[in-house]
Amino acid sequence: MLRLLPEPGSIAYFGPPMSDPKAELMARLRAFEGKASSEPQTARFPVNVPMIEHWCDAMGDRNPAYLDAEWAAASPRGQMIAPPTMLQAWVMPGLRRWRDRPGAGSAVGSILRVLDEAGFTSVVATNCEQEYQRELVPGDVLRTSVTIEHVSDEKQTALGTGHFVTQHYSFRDQSDEVVATMRFRMLKFRPPEASAATPAPKPARPRPRPGITHDNRFFWDGVRAGKLLIQRCAACGRLRHPPGPMCPGCRSLEWDTLESAGRGEVYSYVLHYHPQIPPFEPGHPVALVALDEGTRLVADLVGVEPEEVHVGMRVQVEFNAVDDELILPQFRPLTP
């Protein structure tokens, strides 16, 4: 088939006025590309230590390069630096000022309104890439300019149909040198229509349940009673975990239990990131705990930052209800 004109809706369409509303919208959106999103913003405050400390507290970051002036002075840099990913925090207008003038009169405000009017009323930030030309140090004063770099065609996404809007940020310092750039992409999408057929949001997925058998019921009953029980051969006294019906040492089928004091040390551990499996958080610490009584068991750790876990760490059991139905033995670092 011979096409004399590009299809309406394609980027190269320069034909007569169109009746296709999608193409019309696309043309309006494309016109924003290359425009400044808003007036250049100058940071309210120079790069400063108090904001850095608050940010590090919130992020759980303890890098002495950001926090310890003495350490930083002795480091190859010779001084403290700001966390690079704090970049955008320096030029944010602050809640009150943003509430007063949410992008008023700006191109980004306009493009969002155009999308709102076209029914793409929901928004989600999808990704953000930053590139750093130099490290920021206390006293730097940043200024940023933002342009609308790209508006995508209409896309089908898991959230709904929408357009991706990409903004490009350039950050300059007091000497007008570019210190960093950022690409920030958001999806403006049409929320799926709520209807009677739409099921209510599911509760957070619960943790997998243990399989209970005649051989291990005592363990899980013990957990519900706040006891960590270890199976013990009634004939030879050998302890075993995970439990089973027969002693592998003397082959006796008779057994009783020993209540563990619940103390031990981390024999090995992992931090689980991918795939993300709710309800577990990224970085979820799971340990192989060597109990003082001599057996080992797997359990997750609580009350500890992932980066603080180490082999040999002393831990103490506690019994926690992880949801309405399930109580698990979990371990917390013992304070010396």
Partner: peptide
């Protein structure tokens, strides 16, 4: 209540999956 479900029960509830 199989040996296999008991086996995974020592790991999966704790997030070792």
């Amino acid at each position: 209540p199989t040996a296999e479900s008991a086996h995974f029960g020592w790991y999966a509830p704790f997030g070792l999956l």
